[in-house]
């Protein structure tokens, strides 16, 4: 395992693992207009981190548990006709605030809050990589297994019901996948930017894709380029890695949207 002693290589593997899981799931987040849903789930993870440290269990388990509770709560509320936009705004930000307050109570442990807010990809261990790739494989496996049903339910719940698919079960699959992605991405990009890893590559892929599958594939490629490129850029420019990754994804988004709109103007 001498190869994995190189911290840059470990960081690259961690970034690729997150990109692989976040990008295809991010397509569903975009198609179903769940951007705020992703935010609320990700922000809740900081509370999970605080609880995990307080009870000295694994941060991954703590973040996964609290994210899952938050994602299930939001998912259950979304079917009941509340003003979702407001409710998600309240949940997303209060989860973050409660998490930050909870962390401040942990006087005994000296923790680097910034590492959980913005990620600390250069500090990932071999064990972290195993967790990230395990989680990513689970998410990609779930999405591949349910792909047709997820797509039908996303298009129209009524079409899904008529085809013998229960859209609420598919929603649950996405909810579970979302909590998993949040839990594995926390170390790489931090809770504040996880939603960006979901949404930005998917949005950047949209103008280049004609089918849902192509969009998910292109989004994954864009996310991988952003992860590796951002890692390299942050090393050279001595900038924080998580935000640099998101910046690169955002630049790609700007380029494809601009290119896409010029293409349609030419055709029209």
């Amino acid at each position: 395992m001498t190869l994995l002693d190189d911290f840059m290589l470990r960081a690259a593997l961690a970034g690729l693992g997150v990109a692989l899981a976040a990008a295809p799931l991010g397509c569903f987040v975009v198609w179903r207009r769940m951007a705020y849903f992703g935010d609320a789930t990700a922000h809740a993870a900081i509370l999970g981190v605080a609880l995990a440290l307080a009870f000295s269990t694994s941060v991954f388990i703590g973040a996964l548990a609290v994210s899952l509770v938050m994602a299930m709560t939001v998912s259950a509320l979304s079917g009941r006709g509340f003003a979702m936009d407001t409710l998600l705004g309240v949940l997303a930000h209060s989860a973050l605030a409660f998490g930050l307050v909870a962390v401040s109570f942990l006087s005994g442990v000296r923790i680097d809050l910034m590492a959980y807010l913005f990620g600390d990809i250069l500090a990932v261990s071999v064990g972290d990589i195993a967790v990230i790739w395990g989680g990513a494989a689970l998410v990609v496996g779930l999405l591949l297994w349910r792909w047709q049903a997820l797509l039908t339910a996303t298009l129209s719940p009524d079409l899904a019901y008529a085809g013998g698919i229960n859209p609420r079960r598919e929603q649950l699959v996405l909810t579970l996948a979302l909590a998993l992605v949040v839990a594995v991405a926390i170390k790489v990009v931090g809770v504040l930017l996880i939603a960006a890893m979901l949404i930005v590559p998917a949005a950047a892929a949209r103008p280049l894709a004609g089918t849902p599958e192509r969009m998910a594939t292109i989004a994954t490629v864009i996310a991988a380029i952003s992860a590796l490129g951002g890692l390299g850029a942050s090393f050279r420019l001595d900038t924080p890695t998580g935000p640099t990754i998101v910046c690169l994804a955002a630049l790609i988004f700007a380029a494809t949207s601009l290119g896409g709109s010029m293409l349609t103007r030419q055709r029209g």
Binding site: R206, A209, G210, M215
Partner: peptide
């Protein structure tokens, strides 16, 4: 069909 969903 949501405009973000490409569908032939």
């Amino acid at each position: 069909i949501d405009p973000t969903l490409p569908l032939t």
